[in-house]
Write a protein that binds this DNA or RNA. Structure first.
Length: 307
DNA sequence: ATAGGTCAAGCGAGG
DNA sequence: CCTCGCTTGACCTAT
């Protein structure tokens, strides 16, 4: 059986009453950041880091060993130096303990920085902010002491095509060289969910062949942007880009439109649960389930398919 | 405690 | 031009 994981948030723990709530994505809006300042961010970050350990413990108790970190552990981090937070020492130590717990119990931790990270952008400011944000992800993984390999991936989309994918991929590969080692060693790219964007084959030819970083295969996205490859071919081409000693990650989700039987919903929107059998064609992969009901979707999948 | 409006960032699709 | 959808909705104010 392939390992199943979920992303960022645990519905059971985050839907508890406020005082008992456990979540790692406490954030705030700009206005609050401006009025309450860095000390408030520091408090939120410490709570998020402490809750990360609780979530990992919960995962261990429930047989889940694959989890994606929220990118909101430290809100607004691109606007200051994380070491300037009042609770920095305690935050760093808490994250170190979270990473040690994950390592001790063989939990795989990954990340997926937001859609605003567009490394091939023609706008230098966008590229600058992207480098800053990715670096934060690399730094947090370093603090946690997890591997500088795609086992602990920092996964992104290219984010823009600008009507010329080839040029955009060249800029991506060029800007990749500007990333710190903490990011370069962990970075992966994912196929897109629009026909005009990047298929697995595009990423293989335009990114993997040039800079050698692995491709994360997303089953759902592939339906919208298959190129000339079947599902199996795309999966196996993506798998071939991973180092031999690291199990590749794939993403799996289903369409909310089908689940809710509502034509008004976009087909790309994610369902609450996933129902179909995930065919890996006999390959071993770690499967990140992207569904609104998070860990409950993992449990239900295992029930349906006797995983 | 909850309902409803609001909220940093990029991009492309659809209306 | 506007809204949605994406990586993970969560925050904030009024009631």
């Amino acid at each position: 059986m392939n390992t199943l994981g979920y992303a960022c948030q645990n519905t059971i723990l985050s839907e508890r009453p406020l005082t008992e709530r456990i979540m790692m994505s406490r954030s705030c809006i700009r206005r609050t950041f401006d009025t309450k300042g860095l000390d408030y961010i520091s408090q939120l970050t410490l709570l998020n880091a402490q809750d990360l350990i609780k979530i990992l413990q919960w995962n261990e108790e429930h047989g889940i060993k694959f989890f994606r970190l929220s990118s909101d552990i430290c809100p607004w981090a691109s606007y200051f130096d994380m070491t300037d937070m009042r609770d920095y020492e305690q935050i760093h130590e808490t994250l170190r303990r979270a990473g040690a717990y994950a390592s001790a119990h063989s939990h795989r931790l990954t990340s997926h920085p937001g859609q605003f990270n567009v490394l091939p952008s023609p706008n230098p400011n966008v590229v600058e902010r992207c480098i800053v944000d990715l670096t934060i992800h690399g730094t947090i993984f370093d603090w946690m002491g997890v591997s500088r390999t795609p086992y602990n991936k920092i996964n992104i989309h290219l984010g823009g095509a600008y009507g010329d994918k080839q040029s955009a991929m060249e800029r991506f590969c060029k800007n990749f060289e500007r990333l710190p080692d903490s990011v370069q060693t962990r970075l992966t790219v994912e196929n897109d969910d629009k026909a005009s964007m990047y298929s697995v084959q595009d990423l293989y030819d335009g990114v993997y062949k040039r800079i050698g970083i692995p491709i994360v295969f997303d089953y759902h996205h592939h339906r919208f942007c298959p190129g000339d490859l079947s599902e199996r071919e795309a999966l196996e081409l993506a798998m071939s880009t991973w180092p031999d000693d690291i199990v590749p990650v794939v993403h799996y989700s289903e369409s909310r439109r089908d689940e809710q039987n509502n034509d008004k919903l976009k087909p790309q929107a994610h369902s609450d649960y996933v129902y179909d059998y995930i065919d890996t064609y006999g390959n071993t992969v770690d499967i990140m389930i992207e569904a609104k009901r998070k860990e409950q979707a993992v449990f239900r999948y295992k029930e349906i398919h006797h995983g």
